[in-house]
């Protein structure tokens, strides 16, 4: 929508997403604001820009933690929708922005906004998380996320020829580690006892985590819940 004298509002963003009802945007904002962490993360904003100068993401993307803090402080529902539908996924979650002299935590605001975006099943969020299913699968099913077998030469070509050498030797190298809990384990970071995994699956079901996965990736949800249910039934 072009800005005219009639709709110009210097304090608020213009409506860049007319296809989404205002009530939907407002609900997302209120859900963020009602999160118990919100009042710890935002106390207002001096507009000093210290967070921007500390922010790694602001150097490489069209992104600003200051804009996020200000939009939240002004309750600028349209701007917040812009942020929640795209910007939040650029944040590196480094928390360099806690240098804020007002004691704000813009990175923390991003964390809440991301959780609201995921819970609400925003299409933009589903798109962003598409390449991410394997990570979620590992951490929820195996009890730890980073496994040596994920370093495939075609996926990590930018790490150079080392990856090829690594990939060819990894199973043997993994046996040549003196730490008992990690020696020889290639599909997880360390051995996790079956009882521990069952406890973890119970946590996912009891805390509503599985419902969150269902919102972002129904196929992944089906896969994970089938395996976990079966394991839990076996006991």
């Amino acid at each position: 929508m072009p800005t005219t004298l009639e709709n110009w509002n210097p304090g608020k963003a213009e409506n860049r997403h007319p296809e989404v009802a205002y009530e939907v945007k407002e609900r997302l904002f209120l859900e963020t604001k009602n999160d118990p962490r919100y009042h710890e993360f935002l106390y207002g904003c001096y507009e000093c820009g210290i967070c921007v100068s500390a922010c790694p993401t602001a150097r490489f993307y069209d992104y600003s933690p200051k804009v996020i803090a200000q939009a939240m402080a002004r309750e600028d529902v349209e701007r917040i929708y812009d942020i929640i539908s795209e910007d939040i996924w650029n944040c590196a979650q480094c928390f360099s922005c806690v240098r804020c002299p007002r004691q704000n935590n813009p990175g923390g605001l991003v964390t809440i906004l991301r959780e609201v975006a995921v819970k609400s099943g925003l299409q933009e969020t589903k798109d962003v998380l598409q390449g991410y299913s394997r990570v979620i699968y590992k951490v929820m099913l195996k009890g730890n996320q980073v496994s040596p077998d994920m370093l495939q030469p075609d996926l990590f070509a930018d790490w150079g020829p080392w990856v090829q050498n690594f990939s060819a030797n990894m199973p043997i190298w993994k046996k040549a580690i003196p730490v008992d809990s990690i020696r020889g384990v290639t599909d997880a970071a360390w051995k996790v006892d079956r009882k521990t995994l069952l406890e973890l699956y119970t946590i996912w079901f009891e805390t509503g985590s599985m419902e969150i996965i269902k919102e972002v990736d129904e196929g992944l949800y089906d896969l994970l819940s089938d395996i976990m249910q079966e394991e839990l039934e076996e006991g």
Binding site: V118, L129, Y132, V192, D193, T196, T207, S209
Partner: peptide, 18 residues
Amino acid sequence: TDQTSCTGWNYYASATSN
């Protein structure tokens, strides 16, 4: 071997957590 990851990955990366 009765330890799991902290799930910080779900928190800081994909927010598929609560």
